[in-house]
């Protein structure tokens, strides 16, 4: 949920951004990170872990723990807590290891 009346910070961002998560259209506010925008929409499970396939989500929100990685506009393993959400961004939960060898990377 978005915080509409912050107890301390009165400045508001009202500019809306629309993006997609697993093909669902969602609304966010400009200036929010992808992870926060998903959380504002009630989505906290961002994918599963690589080895045990357990649910994973945002943990440190600082780009250090990398627990919140997703696929953004076709790029695997993007850290969603350090990436700002943009209009028409295509976000998918990233449930596999990234493809690093393949035609699309030229090898």
């Amino acid at each position: 949920m978005h915080i509409s009346e912050h107890p301390v910070l009165k400045e508001k961002s009202n500019e809306k951004v629309f993006f997609y998560f697993n093909n669902h259209r969602l609304e966010a506010k400009k200036g929010q990170t992808v992870a926060a925008a998903l959380m504002a929409n009630g989505i906290r499970k961002l994918g599963v872990s690589r080895k045990l396939s357990q649910p994973r989500g945002l943990y440190c929100s600082n780009g250090r723990c990398t627990s919140c990685f997703v696929t953004i506009n076709g790029l695997d393993h993007v850290i969603s807590c350090t990436t700002l959400v943009e209009n028409n961004m295509q976000v998918f939960s990233n449930n596999n290891d990234p493809e690093i060898r393949g035609e699309k990377y030229g090898n």
């Binding site: 949920m1 978005h2 915080i3 912050h6 301390v8 910070l9 961002s13 506010k29 929010q32 990170t33 926060a36 925008a37 959380m39 504002a40 906290r44 499970k45 961002l46 872990s49 357990q54 649910p55 994973r56 989500g57 945002l58 943990y59 440190c60 929100s61 600082n62 627990s67 807590c81």
Partner: peptide, 23 residues
């Protein structure tokens, strides 16, 4: 401890004050 919804206190603070989102 890895379940979504478990996070550092700093992460929760970023969400409410910087992102204006309730965790």
């Amino acid at each position: 401890w890895t379940l979504p919804g478990v996070m550092t206190a700093g992460a929760a603070q970023i969400l409410i004050n910087r992102e204006k989102v309730l965790p």
